[in-house]
Design a protein around this nucleic acid. Structure first.
Length: 643
RNA sequence: GCCGAUGUAGCUCAGUGGUAGAGCAACUGAUUCGUAAUCAGUAGGUCACCGGUUCAAUCCCGGUCAUCGGCUCCA
């Protein structure tokens, strides 16, 4: 009679033989759990092969769970490594984890892999899967493992082992390939139903550019072909939304690499969107008690020395320029200028809080390899603001800023957010007490604003704690735009003071805050979010008037004039083309409304309306249509209502 | 910056060791048409830039610049 243990599964407790394998147990108790990939036991993720030795709570993980997916992808990465080792025997393996979407494995090989190699590796992976190898777990003493991997020439594994402080480590074998690995893994390679190797990349060993560059292969796998196809379709959809592609197609902006990488040229159509963004931004700031300020683009280097930027921010700054024998610096940030304005006159507690906002254009040196369309550039306009306040006002100012951010982001059509509170990092300035007070204020503000958030422990800037808000776009991708940061450093460096009620000088608290972050970046996110089909209030062209024959040109021109008088951005398409071609052209430009004008409309003095989605309405009263448009623009409606 | 790929007409892309081609866009003409492409014609390129090999280079080699994918995920 074997020893018994007690296992709780799905809320029910069972007696089981000690040492029963997790997968066997799950299969017996749960007919529904046939697609289990891994298991959770007393808080740890384990393989289905793992024996259960103690009492405890067990659960199954499928591909629907992050734990299940990680196991699935991690195992696929082992299969890939096994294939690579077989095809390219001299290659050394580094690490091969599951990532957010898929997996990778880093290899050290003299010659980089080519796209053609991927096909061969995929074929070999298919063989390995077909041969249905088990993922065999073995334990090995630390010293034995070092000898084993040193003997195999696996220098990266031995380096990893140097950093491990344990008596035993585990090895997973997949066919002939043995890898140092914590696991867990799938039971057999055949569980991997469909996979694809996606891209090749160079990656530094341990992410450090001082280290050797390894060859990384990325891939992804799924339990069904359909799921893989769905994933590939989503990649394709993201490609279609790429703001760089749409920016060109819709004539929104351009870059001119030959005259400077990472610098953006806003064309008139992009300019309209920017104008609307800015107008809205300014109006809302005035309503929310901000003063609008403007500051220069350069200042003597001395200012940046006082602010400390020449120290901690040097590598992101453009070189200085020599003017009248003095060194001037193109600004990478607006804050020092706002501080100079603050210090221009003596401030008292009665003046605070002071909220100063600026659409300030800054220039930052970014490494050439990280530039990316509108999202990572070298010159951009921040929607920056600095709030100077007393310690007692911090919490309220943060709440105001949070509500303000949400109002702005929601108006632009974003509904889902991820909020992070980043706290004191190891390297920081300022007293611990000040940090704790500020963090408590941020915490309280988040709670009062009713926002769910995650704490990024130690993730704050060295000069203060911060709240970051990431927006989720139509494809569920997240983008970091908004940030609210408390800054102890600059208040100290510049001596930002105010006279208190008690007649003494006190240190003011400075809060940096950006809502959209950078106009360029936010514009890029908007383009991708809307796939170029902007809401009416942002649309570069709001209405296109299309004539069916030249007989309607005169009436159509009158309509155009009337729309323009009403402040609506309208164009007339009186080209000598058939109506189908004109509709196609307007549709590809993603214009929200088309007015189709033929003999009938000219006769009745009506318009025929076609919405961007394709819906049509004939015999529509023109003045009523204008009224509708103006209402929709005023409300900043995201969707176009059916007519 | 580093690794890899790429750079041919405004755009999307063919192509070859003997100085280039398509579709779309543009322009001209014909057509006057009812909800996603009318027909015909014309024009448009230092084949990214610099150098080398060659009788000859857009093509082969080297360099530069730029773009794209990565370089955060830690057995």
């Amino acid at each position: 009679m074997s020893e018994k243990i007690r296992i709780t599964y799905n809320g029910e407790t069972f007696e089981a033989d000690k040492g029963v394998r997790a997968g066997v147990f799950i299969k017996e108790k749960d007919a529904q759990a046939g697609d289990a990939l891994a298991a959770g036991f007393n808080g740890a993720v384990i393989g289905l092969n793992a024996p259960l030795e103690d009492d405890g709570e067990l659960r199954a993980y499928t591909f629907a769970d992050a734990e299940g997916r990680d196991t699935y992808w991690h195992s696929t990465s082992h299969v890939m490594a096994a294939a690579v080792k077989k095809l390219f025997p001299g290659v050394k393996v580094a690490i091969g984890p599951a990532v957010e979407e898929g997996f990778y494995y880093d290899f050290d090989r003299e010659k980089p892999f080519t796209e053609d190699d991927l096909a061969g590796i995929e074929a070999e992976m298919k063989n390995i899967i077909k041969e249905n190898h088990p993922f065999k777990r073995k334990e090995m003493g630390l010293e034995d493992a070092k000898k084993f991997f040193a003997g195999a020439g696996e220098i990266y594994k031995t380096e990893i082992l140097e950093g491990i402080d344990a008596e035993k480590v585990s090895i997973y074998e997949t066919g002939e390939f043995a890898d140092l690995c914590r696991g867990p893994h799938l039971t057999y390679t055949k569980k991997i139903k469909s996979f694809k190797l996606l891209k090749l990349a160079g990656a530094y060993w341990r992410g450090d550019e001082k280290n050797r560059m390894l060859q990384r292969i990325y891939g992804i796998s799924f339990p069904s072909q359909d799921m893989l196809q769905e994933y590939l379709d989503r990649i394709e959809e993201a490609k279609q939304r790429d703001h760089r592609k749409l920016g060109r197609e819709l004539d929104l902006f351009s870059t001119h690499e030959e005259f400077g990488a990472g610098l953006i040229y806003w064309h008139p159509k992009g300019g309209v969107v920017r104008k609307e963004m800015e107008d809205f931004w300014r109006d809302e700031h005035i309503k929310n008690g901000y003063g609008l300020v403007f500051s220069p683009h350069i200042a003597k280097i001395d200012l940046w020395e006082t602010s400390g930027h020449t120290g901690f921010y040097r590598e992101n700054m453009f070189d200085t320029m020599n003017i009248d024998e003095m060194q001037y610096q193109l600004k990478p940030m607006n804050c020092p200028f706002h501080i100079l304005m603050y210090k221009n006159s003596k401030k008292s507690y009665r003046d605070l809080p002071l909220r100063w906002a600026e659409l300030g254009t800054v220039y930052r040196y970014e490494k050439s390899g990280v530039l990316h369309g509108l999202l990572r550039v070298r010159g951009f306009t921040q929607d920056d603001a600095h709030i100077f306040c007393t310690e007692a006002q911090v919490e309220e100012e943060i709440i105001n800023a949070l509500n303000f951010v949400m109002h702005i982001l929601r108006t632009f059509g974003f509904k889902d957010f991820e909020v992070y509170l980043s706290t004191m990092p190891e390297e920081h300035i300022g007293e611990k007490e000040a940090w704790e007070k500020a963090q408590a204020a941020l915490n309280a503000a988040l709670a009062k604003a009713g926002l769910k958030y995650d704490v990024d422990e130690g993730g704050g800037a060295f000069y203060g704690p911060k709240i970051d808000i990431k927006i989720k776009d139509a494809l569920g991708r997240t983008w970091q735009c908004s940030t609210i940061q408390v800054d102890f450093a600059l208040s100290e460096r510049f001596g930002i003071d105010y006279t208190g009620k008690d007649g003494n000088e006190h240190r003011a608290i400075m809060i940096h805050r950006a809502l959209m972050g950078s106009l360029e970046r936010f514009f890029g996110v908007l383009i991708e979010h809307y796939k170029g089909a902007f809401p009416l209030w942002l649309a570069p062209v709001q209405v296109s008037v299309l004539t069916i024959t030249q007989r309607s040109d005169e009436y159509a021109a009158k309509l155009l004039e009337r729309l323009k008088v009403e402040g609506i951005r309208a164009v007339l398409d009186d080209d000598n083309e058939k109506i189908g071609a004109k509709i196609r052209k307007a549709a590809m430009e993603k214009i929200p409304y088309m007015l189709i004008i033929g003999d009938k409309e000219t006769e009745d003095k009506t318009v025929s309306v076609r919405l961007r989605g394709g819906q049509e309405a004939k015999g529509v009263d023109f003045e009523g249509f204008i009224k509708r448009l103006k209402e929709e623009i005023k409300n900043k409606d995201i969707e176009i209502r059916e007519i």
